[in-house]
Design a protein around this nucleic acid. Structure first.
Lengths: 321, 321
DNA sequence: TTGTATGCGTTATCAT
DNA sequence: ATGATAACGCATACAA
């Protein structure tokens, strides 16, 4: 190990003071162009990199933000996280990721840990119904993702509009007997908002609503599809709260030889592959990750306070072939 | 912001010198039990946390490990990464994650970036056929995951044994006309190793081998299944290199009304759900993540040099219901 | 425009 | 057992 260089070494070699080197590194003005170039060359050729630790001590900022997810194996969270990582790199921030696994206690634990790591900010994949009062003790910028948490800047998807556009698409196609399979309204976005959209469109168009609620699994969709069909002969379509649920529903319909239309939300590529056609709505997951970092960046410079972003979703219709 | 406390503040309040506080924080011996307790109490009640940045400056270690993945949306990589994160927390290491997206150039770029971040070590999800010569310039511990890279400690899965155990299971069930659908052998583990196992078992048991090679997608499995079936009437089973390929194959078979057995590798829960039964092999992804951190920890203490871990896979047979 | 001196919050080496 | 004091590598106010 060719012992680690410091700005002092660079300064000596360039025949200048270390503060000048520091200035060059931080791109400050007020350095003679000639000196600057020389120092820059030295830095380049020696592959010198300033100690981030020492910089942090002085700046009293670590350029690190903590991210608390639920489970990274969910499609949506995965994509969002990758958006965060990508954008953070542009902003020269580091990301520290921890998982809560949907465990309330653990969320708080992870926040405490991140605090001890002295992260400069927190991005949290908000859990429906979760109590976030404990966050008051944190003096740093906090951004909520996927679910609005009052008191904190939040970035959410337009769940209402997603189902609304799907419903309007169906109606425009002349479909009128439409059922719904979703999750309980204790989940505000996937549960309440999506179902509300379904219900509102039904009311507005004077068509009957018929719904069943379960959990987020494909098993749930599989099970509930049977009930819905039994109770509603002549059903033309089943609108599902998620693509995962839709997957379960389609499996059931396939077994029954039914050709009823099924829609979901999430734009999971598996569905068009398995069933050739699919109607779904795409949430801008990656974009929400980008946005989170952008907002965080502003927050860290006090350029923004409380804000609320609602990202529109996009209707996707896959046809055979 | 109640201005950040330092060990000096704690020292004053406890009426001791800051060195004593430092000793307590680092759990060093040679501090009177009474003093220790008092300081500990103070730290606890004031929620004091020592500056990680300042610690890093002194220790000349950042306790940060860089991880370079390919694409976090792959099931295997996702699980491994989560294992890494989980274990790293126990070892009080931080993880900096970046993606290469299978781009050779990008891999090197990301390594350079992580170097500038002064990570203490590197964990790389190795890409088949990738040239890792550029790593020579890095003076830190580097661990390879999923693929052996000579010159570096590697953690891999037993791909050969995975297919071998599946083949033996089939043979034991009396199945003898077995086809294979995989990927090209330019991919050493998923391509070469898995196919080799298939072939070897065929030879050893004097049964004919019939194979097709495509890519990693379910579309590939879907397409190749047809060819395989056309050319081999009376086929009893199709062994696939991955569960993803198996998914495509099963879709094809379902369309054809065929009841031929299909096996995969990966233990993707979707297959047993969609098709009730499934034969697959489970790789210990999460465990490999754990192991990576454990090995890294030893490496950082120079307790270990070159090592090679091969994690056994487990045969999984799902039956109806 | 540039150099000097001081401080950031620790840890580590001395004494005591 | 404990307290000064010197680093650690950098940023910055101030001086030149």
């Amino acid at each position: 190990m060719t012992k680690k260089l410091t700005i002092i070494d660079i300064a000596k070699m360039a025949g200048v003071g270390k503060s000048t080197v520091s200035r060059v590194i931080n791109g400050e003005s007020g350095v003679k162009e000639e000196t600057r170039r020389e120092i820059l060359n030295l830095i380049e050729s020696l592959e010198f990199v300033p100690s981030v630790a020492a910089q942090s001590v002085k700046r009293k900022k670590n350029r690190v933000i903590g991210v608390i997810g639920t489970r990274l194996d969910s499609h949506s969270e995965n994509r969002t996280f990758r958006g965060i990582v990508e954008k953070a790199q542009q902003y020269e921030m580091d990301i520290l990721y921890l998982e809560s696994q949907f465990d309330s206690k653990k969320t708080e634990e992870q926040c405490d840990i991140l605090k001890k790591k002295q992260v400069d900010g927190l991005i949290i994949f908000a859990i429906a119904g979760e109590e976030y009062a404990f966050l008051k003790k944190f003096k740093m910028p906090i951004i909520m993702l996927a679910q609005e948490v009052k008191g904190y800047p939040s970035i959410v998807y337009n769940d209402y509009q997603a189902i609304e556009s799907i419903m309007n698409y169906l109606l425009q196609k002349g479909v009128r007997k439409i059922g719904y399979i979703g999750v309980g309204s204790h989940d505000y976005t996937t549960g309440y908002l999506r179902f509300s959209a379904y219900q509102d469109v039904c009311v507005k168009n004077c068509i009957e609503s018929r719904e069943h609620f379960g959990d987020f699994s494909y098993e749930s969709g599989y099970k509930l599809a049977l009930n819905l069909l039994k109770e509603n002969i002549g059903l033309e379509a089943i609108v599902c709260a998620t693509d995962t649920i839709a997957l379960g529903v389609r499996k059931r319909l396939q077994e029954l030889g039914s050709m009823i239309l099924v829609t979901g939300v999430g734009d999971n590529p598996l569905l068009p592959f398995l069933y050739e056609t699919h109607i779904t709505a795409r949430h801008q997951y990656k974009r929400s990750g980008y946005l989170a970092i952008e907002v965080m960046s502003k927050l860290l410079q006090n350029q923004e306070s409380l804000s609320y972003y609602i990202l529109p979703s996009e209707l996707k219709v896959y046809n055979k072939g």
